[in-house]
Design a protein around this nucleic acid. Structure first.
Length: 568
RNA sequence: GGGCCCGUGAUGUAGUCCGGAUAGCAUAAUCGGCUUCGGACCGAUAUACGAGGGUUCGAAUCCCUCCGGGCUCGCCA
């Protein structure tokens, strides 16, 4: 059972004198730009409109009416148009640190809701290996999933393999013609991808290959044994390769769908929609939907083969039937914004109420200095290679600092490299495009994943060397240095940050919080000795603070998909 | 041409939904600290809201026009 927060105390106090609802007050109250101004502020601009008075006089009038109770609030000051609240620091420290102590790794988490959210990612095509875009996708998908779990949701992580269609046929045809029935001599998804690139090159000189692709797709949909056999073989290669990458990146799925198994049901739904007059057939025989201002969209080709959206329509229904989700989130790049507007509109046209529960979590494109990544031309940042590169960079740093066994070096470098990568991918807001410059983009210093890991190592080491276990039986008034107070206040904000981050599907809010928290801890570390503290009592008090920091920061890392390390 | 998104110091970004206190942060630069519970650290300095109008007591934030970039617009996924 969460205890009452300071903010709630302030709201209690204000509802007695200000004519605003608790909800409005909660919305209005903000943290001042400078902590010297106060710990919490009520801006009075909003009130000045209804009261028809100058915000400055309102602030001072409210101040006069308030009777300060004994407790968490030390002082209330009217500063210009703001009413600023100052907290009793020892009390604040006590309530915050005791709560963290009690709730441990559950600090900030909400109680279970018995509601399900389905999160779909990264939905790859099985004709080429995963690239940097997929890594952005997966770090977002995984982090959002974990964040939703903190808010009490049951999260079902779902992957969809786009394993049929013309693009799949391209790598198949190239293999069939020029692959000599070879077995993979490298990571198997890369092997498949090579044939996709090969097809594009050959097709430039031989445009007639495009016709063979259409024929192959028809043969595939007609379940031609030879085509299906080849398809099975190559899909396995692709999927085996993906699984290795998922494992290394630290994602897994509760359910995996395959487009090849859902597209036929999609076709049926479209034919049914045609019967009901929701869709229509044009002169060529293709089936279309008229979406009004969104234009028109092909749902089935004249030759009867299905398109990308065909299976998505059925899959949305299938997911709902299976999970009765409260929300269905599609983590897909912004280039598909139009696709999802169309999809959700069609679901509505078909009369599905769950259409309103579907949400496209769109994220920006990743570019290279040379422009857009193109798998067909081989100009992509490959996911596996990138992880290798980062491990290598981390490894150099590790060797500089430590003499370790080879296996330990590898293990440590991998965790640090991944931390740098994931943090980098999550730290800017999802909807922004970004350019990836291999040399400049990834750093291990400053606002980075390794910095967070490092500060956690420091916190852990202090606790190990302290010789005593942390306890809450301490004198909270001893935690009165600015570094200590600032850190405690920040720790107290964690539950609110989780709510905000999860509610807006914005992990970048959490990266910002975690980094600021780590900075405050570093400042505390510089300014306040723990083990060699002036007194035994102070040591105990600081040890609890370190322990609290450790728990909260570890939570942050976990929600960002970053692993803790033992040494750095 | 239509729709959607983006433009903040040298670089990368937060803040924009819902307008308010000196626009926050990191990297790079310059200077400094400490190497002490581990320096992948800490402190200091300098540098920014694409342009122009409008609304407002007040605009990075809202409205309009323009400029620059991106994505997308029935049979790729």
């Amino acid at each position: 059972m969460p205890m009452k927060t300071i903010k709630e105390e302030v709201i209690d106090l204000l509802t007695k004198t200000v004519k605003l609802s608790r909800e409005d007050l909660a919305e209005l109250l903000e943290t001042p730009s400078d902590s010297k101004l106060g710990d919490l502020a009520l801006p009075c601009f909003h009130l000045s409109k209804t009261l028809k008075k100058d915000p400055k006089t309102i602030a001072s009038e409210i101040r006069e009416k308030i009777k300060l109770p004994k407790g968490l609030i030390r002082e209330v000051k009217a500063t210009g148009p703001y009413l600023n609240f100052f907290f009793e620091e020892a009390k604040l420290a006590e309530s915050t640190l005791k709560r963290i102590w009690k709730e441990r790794e559950g600090y900030g988490y909400k109680r279970r809701l018995n509601k399900t959210v389905v999160v779909e990612f990264p939905a790859p095509n099985t004709n080429k290996p995963l690239h940097l875009g997929h890594l952005r996708n997966m770090s977002l998908g995984e982090s959002v999933s974990r964040l939703l779990e903190t808010q009490g949701y049951r999260v079902v992580r779902v992957n969809l393999n786009n394993d049929r269609g013309v693009h799949i046929c391209k790598s198949m045809l190239a293999y069939k013609k020029w692959g000599d029935n070879k077995e993979p001599d490298k990571k198997s998804d890369h092997f498949v991808g090579d044939f996709y690139v090969m097809f594009s090159q050959k097709a430039k000189e031989h445009p007639e290959l495009e016709r063979e692709i259409q024929e192959m797709l028809i043969a595939w949909e007609a379940k031609d044994p030879e085509t299906i056999g080849l398809w099975r073989k190559m899909n396995c290669w692709a999927l085996d390769g993906f699984n290795e990458t998922y494992k290394r990146f630290g994602v897994s799925f509760d359910k995996v769908y395959y487009e090849s198994r859902t597209y036929e049901k999609g076709k049926e739904m479209i034919l049914e929609g045609l019967k009901k007059g929701i869709f229509y057939k044009d002169e060529s025989g293709a089936i279309l939907a008229d979406l009004g201002e969104l234009g028109k969209k092909i749902l089935l080709r004249a030759d009867g083969t299905s398109v990308y959206i065909t299976q998505d329509i059925y899959l949305a229904k299938l997911k709902y039937d299976e999970y009765h989700y409260e929300k269905s989130i599609y983590v897909v790049a912004s280039e598909q914004n139009y696709h999802f507007r169309v999809l959700f509109k069609i679901l509505k046209m078909l009369g599905f109420k769950f259409a309103d529960k579907c949400y496209h979590l769109s994220y920006g494109m990743v570019y290279l200095p040379s422009g857009r990544m193109k798998s067909r031309e081989g100009s992509v940042v490959d996911a596996d290679n990138l992880m290798d590169e980062l491990d290598g960079m981390a490894e150099k740093e590790v060797r500089k600092r430590h003499k370790l066994k080879e296996t330990e070096v590898k293990n440590l470098s991998e965790k640090i490299g991944l931390a740098a990568l994931k943090y980098f991918l999550l730290r800017c807001s999802a909807n922004k495009d970004f350019v990836f410059k291999p040399e400049e983009s990834i750093s291990f210093e400053g606002d980075t994943g390794p910095y967070l890991q490092y500060s956690l190592v420091r916190a852990k080491k202090i606790q190990q060397k302290a010789g005593t276990k942390p306890t809450v039986s301490i004198d909270f008034t001893l935690l009165n240095k600015p570094e200590e107070i600032a850190l405690i206040k920040r720790l107290g904000e964690f539950p609110g940050i989780l709510e905000k981050t999860a509610g807006s599907y914005s992990p970048h809010i959490l990266t910002e919080y975690a980094f600021k928290l780590a900075t405050l801890f570093s400042q505390f570390y510089e300014g306040c000795q723990v083990i060699a503290a002036e007194s035994e009592e102070l040591k105990k008090a600081r040890l609890l603070l370190v322990n609290s920091y450790y728990h909260v920061q570890k939570s942050c890392l976990n929600l960002l998909g970053i692993e803790e390390v033992g040494i750095m």
